[in-house]
Structure formats: C-alpha cells, structure tokens
C-alpha cells in the first residue's frame, strides 16, 4: 500500500469516527439540561472532539485528493456509511434491518456511479 492509499483508509476511519463522536456527544447533550439548546452541544467535549476530527479529516482529504483521482477516492469515502451503520448496530443498540442495509448499499453504489460519471 502506498502512503496515499493508507491516508484514504485513514480518511474513512476519521469520517466515521467524527460522526460517532458527535452522536455520543449529542446523546449526552440531550441529557444535560443546562444552557440553550443550540449552544449546549458546544459544551460537550465529545462534540468538540468530533468537530476537530472533521477538521483533521478535511486536511487529510486534500492530501488524498492531490494523489488519488476523485472518482476513486469519493466512493471509497462513502464506505464510512457502512462503518457507521455497523457501529450503530453493534455498539449503540440501534436495530438495523435488511431494508436499511440495502439502502446503505444503494447509496454507496450511487456515490460510486456519481463519482465515476464526473
């Protein structure tokens, strides 16, 4: 694996991690009653960590795009939908049925077609 391929895999991981951190942070924010509903999230360390992860991801993504064609990189990034849904099912006790998995598969396929066409 080349460095840019490793970065691409890392980008999928970071994109997934960001959403997972934000979700956990917002679950806590919903329990904490202090502060205004729109400002409450900014007091949650996990939300701030999720946002920081997104910033790091953006920088990494620019590096990836300078080495790998967007028509390959973009669909690979869409794999983060699979990672996040799998995590939600296993670790957050969300019930993910066949229909939702089929939906995720179609989305990943669609992003692939969109990127290939562009």
């Amino acid at each position: 694996m080349s460095v840019s391929q490793i970065f691409l895999v890392l980008a999928v991981g970071l994109a997934s991690l960001a959403q997972i951190l934000l979700k956990h942070g917002m679950t806590r924010a919903a329990q904490a009653r202090a502060g205004h509903v729109w400002l409450r999230p900014l007091r949650q360390p996990l939300v701030l960590a999720g946002m920081s992860t997104q910033v790091v991801l953006t920088c990494l993504w620019l590096v990836v795009l300078s080495h790998i064609d967007v028509s390959l990189a973009f669909p690979v990034l869409a794999l983060s939908y699979v990672v996040v849904v799998a995590y939600s099912a296993v670790s957050m006790d969300e019930v993910v049925g066949k229909r939702r998995w089929c939906g995720v598969a179609l989305i990943v396929l669609g992003v692939g077609v969109l990127a290939y066409a562009a």
Partner: peptide, 19 residues
C-alpha cells in the same frame, strides 16, 4: 443514474423500521 441510486437508497433507509 448515480443521483437516482442515492435517492432510492435514502428512501429505503428512511422507510426502514425504527429501533
């Protein structure tokens, strides 16, 4: 075509059973 596939996928996800 890509747009259509994504929209079908989103519809399936949206219509799936909630936990």
């Amino acid at each position: 075509a890509g747009t259509g596939l994504i929209m079908c996928g989103v519809a399936l996800v949206a219509g799936s059973r909630r936990s």
